[in-house]
Design a protein around this nucleic acid. Sequence first.
DNA 1: ATATCGTATTGACATGGATCAAAGCGACAA
DNA 2: TTGTCGCTTTGATCCATGTCAATACGATAT
Lengths: 261, 261
Amino acid sequence: MDQSDKPTERESEPELPNKSALPISLVTIKAACSQCSLHELCLSEGLSKEELSKLDNLVGSRRKLKRQQSLYRVGDPFEALYAIRTGFFKTDILLEDGRDQVTGFQMAGEILGMDGIGTEAHSCNAVALEDSEVCIIPFSQLEQLSREIQTLQHNFHKVMSRELVRDQGLMMLLGTMRAEERLAAFLLNMSQRFTTRGYSAAEFHLRMTREEIGSYLGLKLETVSRAFSRFQEEGLIAVQQKHIRIIDGDGLKRLLNHQPR
Amino acid sequence: MDQSDKPTERESEPELPNKSALPISLVTIKAACSQCSLHELCLSEGLSKEELSKLDNLVGSRRKLKRQQSLYRVGDPFEALYAIRTGFFKTDILLEDGRDQVTGFQMAGEILGMDGIGTEAHSCNAVALEDSEVCIIPFSQLEQLSREIQTLQHNFHKVMSRELVRDQGLMMLLGTMRAEERLAAFLLNMSQRFTTRGYSAAEFHLRMTREEIGSYLGLKLETVSRAFSRFQEEGLIAVQQKHIRIIDGDGLKRLLNHQPR
DNA sequence: ATATCGTATTGACATGGATCAAAGCGACAA
DNA sequence: TTGTCGCTTTGATCCATGTCAATACGATAT
């Protein structure tokens, strides 16, 4: 029932048969692309079978990461984008003065690495928060293929644009919301993204610490913890460490839409 | 001497001769593209003359805006990107509950509208803060041309990626910096961008109100005003309403790199 | 000149969240 | 079972910024 709590187990799912050992069939291609690219987040939406097959060639190589391992770090040369197949990541920035901030949490079906395109080097760190697997998309090949395939080109542009809009939303959160509003927005966002991926909207397991949540939301960990406690007292959620159950989602939404003042 | 104070006068510069009345010459093309796309921000960097000419065809149409006029609004159907030729813009978001936030200030050579690609509709408002002129870049044509011209494609991807990185920086600012640090970062950023455009690094005229600065930085206008005053007392800058002179730029930088605590 | 309006400055006070500190809890190893 | 370690919760205080209010400034119109 509570499948949302178990995605880590997907790690141990049997590997797909080694592609190179088999004739490439539409079945394995579909499997490969439907895994890493659920829903509309994906680069492959709307592609013909033939086009999908080209994309799949490009995306052939994968990489597994253990919890706490970095996918890339600030300054690493930019070579590829990464589509998350399974697992959970954070991106963060660390300034010389010790200041750091989590700039995002990413889950299956989302694309990492676009920060590196502009300067040929990554501008943030991407760290796995649980054992994870990504598909490696060499960027120059993606550009080449998207010169051939209009739909792919447009999909990629949409992905980048949505990322811009997501960032705008986060700025709004950081610039105008109070602690409880921020946390409510965060929980609703998580819930919505888990739902999109077929997990429970009401019950899930957070992969990040209070400190990481706080960093993302521009709050201290104690403030996050207190807000969790208050939500629990008010019957909005049930918290037990990293396990969250949303009891009154509408109540959380009301927190958001309420007058700032 | 203080040219930084006068960019508005560029508004009244004589229009280029009507292109359709003349054979397209490399001169007018160069003039058109070198105007709107100073430096590396531009989509046209590294293009051959022939390629530039194709881009210029695409970018033919322009639009003038008076101060306070909207270039586009939330929900407007997305059709084109806009390259700022002259003038100064802000983008902002307004929530139902009255909350609003400035998400960016844009000046000549920068590109507006990328927020609309992902959903086919704009997700923010773009408003001219002084009389301005933009080049209209119909997006489907840009995609088409960037399927032909690899360099153009890559330039566009770089522009979007840099926007992502800019947003990361702003998140860092909103999430971890204190009021004076935020304002120092803002002033240094403005100074740097004016410099890039050939204006004075030390002296410039802000086009936005204290309230707009505050909204952008996640502060109230009074806090912005007080920080300006304190900088002045400390001999870092000279403020007179919207006119700013940076006296001790290194002092401002020191404010930034200092331990957060 | 004088009045008006939007914007900016400054002061006095209130408060949300940070900071500091101490327990509590759960997982894992010895 | 006991100890350790990382994470979380909770309490007591502090302080940066928000809030409210008064005044000043500068541009424009009368």
